[in-house]
Structures are given as structure tokens and as C-alpha cells.
Design a binder for these strands. Structure first.
Lengths: 228, 228
DNA sequence: GCCCCTGTGACACGTCTGTGACAGTCGGCG
DNA sequence: CGCCGACTGTCACAGACGTGTCACAGGGGC
């Protein structure tokens, strides 16, 4: 990655956009800006930024939709800006594929801290393998090994594990996992996620009945734990 | 790592303003200044500082009022400057939404220390974890640890703690907590909140019988205290 | 000292999760 | 073209766990 992070800021409000651009420049970033989702998507193709800061409330196609479109072709990190401190937005945001979200009004240095955190995480991820205890996930080869032995994961199991390992230590709700792994909304809940988690545990955990890697977060969902 | 903090100093006395500006610049801050509340509010919109240092005694709209107006739309940190060491001012100031409070005459390096303290606090809060004494709340992982040991909180206990920690130092009534945590209104009162608080204390407090974190506010409800 | 408020333990109910079985779907291969 | 196997989604169920209620005791405030 370039020594100076290159950001694309998509925000329609002139005052906020200019202010954030100024602030982020002062924090040592290179910044490109766009005032609409359409412009943002175009600029994205031209300029290849390292990270996108994206307002949710945009005229025309909204931030969530922009997020989804970007995700269809690109994996670069996205930080959502949302006006409401509403948790619902947070959930929808992460489900649409964002890496982080920040509630407006936002201080420049807070945004900067989040940006750096996401970029750091990205660097870790871009390495081709991740290790969790005796488990090694090779993203390039798309293989998972336990104690050096190759695990035969099915496509869905693998996607589930990859999504969990994209955010190690972070609890993900069943809804979030459904969107991330299965890419569809459920209105009611189903045992689908549970069933897949169970199958994954059977292959991944040393003692599937008392899992140490894929932990249940009661009332929420699941979380991939990093062993100390 | 520290990017240069950008401050807005609102102070009508020319001598003090110039002196503080000079001093703060020497401490490594970037400083914008305004000589009145009106100018300050305008500059705020344009420049988006990281923090505001605000004199209480201003011609026209006074500091408290400026503070309240800022708070209506913004959450950025505010440090109040006052000439009087009067305690009443402290109370009014903190009630109007200030984050800290410094009595004039103030040395530049003292103000600098306060500024850095407030900014640090802001950065901590902006991350997904919060610390109260030996207690660490990780909002992303949905875990709570005490002295590094993982506490097994139940979903409701966790929600209760999260809601309290969203407003540290603020007393919340049982009604408010019922709405926030249980999401339903009760007409009569019940011991429900008390019971949950008790269970939470049993896990969170060092000495549950004399709680230091989750304090009872008689006749009102409960409050999460930040240890000094 | 009195009364109201709060802390506390027990208990029964309800919700959530893990689990095994089963059926539908899809792709590969003969 | 059809069979077969693997994979996946659904369902039902049992058990664990968490939760709300109640009664009562203790204590602080007026």
C-alpha cells in the first residue's frame, strides 16, 4: 500500500464534504471527493483509492446501494457515514458489506482513527493466510488445515468461515451472516445459520460440543475467537 | 502517530486570546480564533475543528448558550474557560454540555494537558470498547472483561450495561431503562430492573453489596459511574 | 420511628440453541 | 439422458439457560 493512504470521500453536503476533506488532508491522507453516488462509482474506477468514506444519505442511489455495487466487483474497505445513531443503520450497513461505520457529526480525528484501524485490518487480511490456534486459513489456496491436515470444507462452510475470519473477535448476528454468506434477507428467522455453524464446528473444533473457536453469543449470533 | 489537533478558540479579550493562541501553537496545535460567539459558530461550520475552547464571558450570546447551540447539532468536545472559580459555573457548564472546564487565568501548558486529555477520551469513546476502572466493555465482540477475565453476561445484562455505558455519569430512571433495554413500556412499576441490576452487579462489581460502578440513585434509578 | 424504596433469593415459565433426520437441488459422470 | 452422490435448507424436538415475578428483609431519608 502507498505510504500515504488515498481516500475517496463520497458526501453530498458541500459543507461537510469540504470540512472532512480539509481535516483528512491535515491528518496526512490524500483525498478525492465526489458529491453523489454516481460520481463516486466513476471516480472509483479511475482512481483506485485505498479506502472509501461513504455517506449513507445520498441523492439518487443511496449509500447502502453504492456499498453493495462496489462490493460486487471490489473488496476495498468502506467506511459508512450515518447521520442517525440508530443501531438499525449500523446493522444494515455492515450487512451491505461495509467494514466500519461512523456516526455523524464526526470529528476529523475520530474518522482518521477509524480509517487507520480499517486499513490496518486490511493489511492483516491481505496476507494470504490467517491462523487461529491449530487452524490455518489459506485465502489464496482457499484451503483450511487443522494441525496440518487438510479440512474438506463445503463451499458454504468455507464462505461462513471466511466471513467470520474477516472480523475476528467481532460478534456477528444471524441476520448479518445470512446477508454476508447467503446474500439474501430473511424475514423470519431460521435455523439455517445454526445448522451450518454446527457442521462447520464438527470439522473445525477439537471438541465440537464445547467450541473454542466459533463461539456462540447468546441472543446475538456467533463470533470467531482468537485464542490467546 | 498524533496528527495535529485543530482547535477553535473563542475568546473576546484580545490579550488573552492572542496569548493562548501563541501558547497553544507552540504546544503543537493548529488554532483558529474567534472574538465572539457568533463568529465562533460561523467558523465552526466552515472549519470543523477537533475541539473548541470557549470563554464563558462573551459579549452577545454567552459561552453557555454557545455551548448549548453547538451541542444541538454537534458532539465535538468543548472546554470552557471561566474567570470565576465559582462552583456554580462548573455545574452550569457541565450541564450545558461541556466536556471540561478550566479556570482563568490559565497557563498554556495546563490548557494543553486538558485538551489532550479530552481528545484522548474522545478517541477512546469512538472506538468499540470502553473502560470503567477494571471493567472493559467491547461492543464489537459483545464481551465484558474484568481484570482481563471474561465475564459471562447474559443478553439482557449485557444490553443493560451497554445502555448505561452509553451515558456514563447520567442517571437513568427505571422507565427509561425499561424502554431502552426491554423495549416496552410498563404502566405499573416492577422489580424487573432492580433484579437485573442486581444480577449485573454480582458479576461486575468487586463488592456487590457496596457497588462503585453501578450506583443507585434513590427515587430515580441507576447510574454508571466513571471511577476517578 | 415510620414508611417507602431497594436488595435479594427462590421458582416456574419461556425462549433460544444444539442436534439429528429428512428431503430437495445441483452438478458430474457414465 | 438419467443416475448418483454431495451439499444444502428445513423441520421437530429436547434440553439448557435466561428471565420475570413474588415475597420478604433491610436500610435510608424525612
Amino acid at each position: 500500500m502507498a505510504p500515504v493512504p488515498f481516500l475517496l470521500l463520497i458526501e453530498d453536503d458541500d459543507a461537510i464534504r469540504t470540512a472532512l476533506e480539509l481535516s483528512l488532508s491535515r491528518q496526512g491522507h490524500r483525498v478525492a471527493t465526489a458529491a453523489s453516488g454516481e460520481d463516486g462509482l466513476l471516480l472509483l474506477k479511475e482512481q483506485r483509492p485505498d479506502l472509501i468514506v461513504l455517506d449513507v444519505m445520498l441523492p439518487g442511489i443511496d449509500g447502502f446501494e453504492v456499498c453493495r455495487r462496489i462490493r460486487r466487483t471490489d473488496q476495498l474497505p468502506i467506511i459508512l457515514l450515518t447521520a442517525r445513531s440508530d443501531d438499525i443503520d449500523v446493522v444494515v450497513g455492515l450487512e451491505s458489506g461495509a467494514d466500519d461505520y461512523v456516526v455523524k457529526p464526526v470529528q476529523g480525528r475520530v474518522l482518521d482513527a477509524r480509517i487507520r484501524a480499517v486499513l490496518r485490518r486490511g493489511e492483516r487480511e491481505s496476507t494470504d493466510s490467517a491462523t487461529y490456534g491449530s487452524l490455518v486459513i489459506d485465502r489464496a489456496a482457499m484451503t483450511v488445515t487443522k494441525n496440518g491436515l487438510d479440512l474438506q470444507l463445503t463451499p458454504t462452510e468455507l464462505r461462513l468461515l471466511l466471513e467470520l475470519s474477516r472480523r475476528p473477535g467481532q460478534a456477528l448476528s444471524r441476520q448479518q451472516l445470512l446477508r454476508l454468506v447467503w446474500e439474501h434477507d430473511y424475514l423470519g428467522d431460521s435455523r439455517l445459520v445454526d445448522a451450518c455453524v454446527q457442521r462447520l464446528r464438527a470439522k473445525v473444533e477439537d471438541v465440537p460440543s464445547s467450541p473454542t473457536l466459533i463461539r456462540t453469543v447468546r441472543g446475538v449470533g456467533y463470533r470467531l475467537d482468537v485464542p490467546a
